[in-house]
Design a protein around this nucleic acid. Structure first.
Lengths: 158, 158
DNA sequence: ATCTCCCGTGTTATAAGGTAACGAATTGCA
DNA sequence: TGCAATTCGTTACCTTATAACACGGGAGAT
């Protein structure tokens, strides 16, 4: 059994690894990993809790003075397009991606109690969904799967 | 193979059936199916395309004159709580529920081309997701699964 | 029959999330 | 060096959603 991002861990490693991965992938793909984009990625990774765009904006403002929504949204668009962060549709919020190296359909476990989010990437679920959709004549192009519930630590704490 | 809501059909039956089902369930549960709630449900069911709250608000305004967002949101909250409509998180929009009689985790197929939405209710997918979450120590309480893609009719039209 | 309380609705105001459009600055490259 | 494309700042605005308070009508209790 794995506890994914819910397990206790040295979180600084998560941030460092995520930024380095993005750095390398951008270099490999000829993309510009600008200071702003890097900083927004770091901020998204400050925890395993999803972060709202305006929360990021406030953080950026605190650091750089004036800033407007497009500043953050453009950085987020870049990070989303390149698979460095995910958007949680049910929360209108963003989390870092655990496996930015390859595109994948992720499944998110969102703890209602501590708000932390873990990412699963179960190919079998993805395939089953695609197959069932195909049974209805539907070609699946993108899947969003978000599971609300209670993580182990929070369940024990009750 | 089933084509779910994508198949051509006499849509008036969908509306009539949905309203009648809601009527009966409310009666059975001692809930008040007020004219406003009934009307909003009918409007959500005008098509198999998801409808935005402000779109509904405009329709209500056209019928009744002045109306404000809470009018629609409160009706939607009621319909959501009681399983008569679903909310599509990725679109911030609402669709009628095909099986309001029992709570269920639904999977939505959203056509990028015609915008129509069909609801699947595959228990095996739901169980697999719950089980994989459980493997990570996570207790699943609610699942949101939205699949973007192309429906059969739109695929043929290309 | 009346009272009372709860629920549903109206209304105003505002919060939260997101985008369009334009121009200035920076970067990569010929 | 100079050009084109990309990135970023800035202003304005749009969409989605909720908080808070007031009003009224209906159902059950007395």
């Amino acid at each position: 059994m794995s506890t994914l991002g819910f397990a206790s861990h040295n979180h600084k490693d998560c941030i460092r690894d995520a930024v380095r991965a993005a750095e390398e992938l951008c270099a490999a793909r000829g993309l510009r990993f600008t200071p702003l984009r890097r900083r927004v990625l770091e901020l998204v990774w400050q925890s395993h809790k999803p972060v709202g765009a305006y929360e990021l904006l406030d953080l950026i403002k605190a650091e750089r003075g004036a800033a407007a929504p497009p500043t953050v949204y453009r950085a987020l668009d870049f990070l989303l397009e390149n698979g460095f962060v995910h958007r949680l549709e049910s929360l209108n919020a963003y989390v870092g991606c655990d496996h930015p190296d390859a595109p994948h359909a992720a499944q998110f476990l969102i703890c209602n109690s501590c708000r932390r989010v873990a990412e699963m990437s179960d190919g079998a679920i993805e395939r089953r969904v695609s197959n069932r959709a195909a049974d209805a004549g539907f070609r699946s192009e993108r899947q969003t799967l978000e599971v609300m519930g209670t993580c182990e630590a929070c369940a024990e704490r009750q």
